[in-house]
Design a protein around this nucleic acid. Structure first.
Lengths: 117, 117
DNA sequence: ATAAAGTGCTATAGTTTGTCAAGTAAGACG
DNA sequence: CGTCTTACTTGACAAACTATAGCACTTTAT
């Protein structure tokens, strides 16, 4: 039973942020609002289905605001809400850590260089 | 093609940290070294198989140190390496953000309270 | 008008990832 | 001897994620 696990904000935050693509999405949006496909390209490698699910979740949580500018032609923009913008601190912390401790070659990419010989 | 996407430390860091349970593991270990099952309990809800995979990855990355004290009875301890300890900043940033912006009820848990009526 | 390329978003099927439950080996305790 | 603990493995399975295609519609070019 984890029912006794008292409510812990850090735990909850991690639950949200550890979802695949979520931090990438936030980071991309930190530079300014983007459209759906645009965001998809900025994030790099996330497919529309997953992107939609994440975006819905983030909007639900109040980290994101979705604005429909025109239905036809479709023109939507996704923008961080104040709560989302404040994640800048987290991304910055990650950035600082990464620059200090992460080097290429230590992280194994998704693309394992395929055949070599 | 993401080949042109120049190496970006933040991106790499996010790739690592977004893996399910990774941040929970780091957070648990920030309080001091733990044994395998002990860590599993501290993380809360991660099964041994996944835990082992994450631990191996983290050790590989140099964020974690694994020390075998005795093989039989098995006694192992997992402890953050300096690079791992420095993630304290990231966890702190998440904590600060969470306390400011996250409230119970806004986050839908993995466990939807089951039957209610 | 036709064709190509763009928009936000959805549906389907297939792959990857994570989960559960059980099992292994060895010692301490009763 | 049987039970409990430890670390970790294995195999079957479910959930999550992905690729690919498509929809309704616009713009641009021919």
């Amino acid at each position: 039973m984890d029912a006794e696990r008292a409510y812990c904000p850090v735990h909850e935050a991690i639950q949200v942020l550890q979802e695949k693509w979520t931090m990438h999405i936030v980071r991309a949006l930190l530079d300014g609002p983007l459209g759906f496909n645009e965001l998809g390209r900025a994030v790099g490698g996330c497919n529309p289905a997953t992107l939609k699910v994440r975006l819905d979740h983030l909007e639900n949580l109040g980290l994101l605001r979705r604005t429909v500018h025109s239905q036809m032609p479709p023109r939507t923009s996704y923008e961080l809400a104040p709560a989302g913008v404040d994640l800048q601190r987290v991304i910055d912390a990650i950035g600082a850590w990464a620059r200090e401790h992460l080097d290429a070659a230590s992280v194994d990419d998704q693309e394992p260089t395929a055949a070599v010989g």
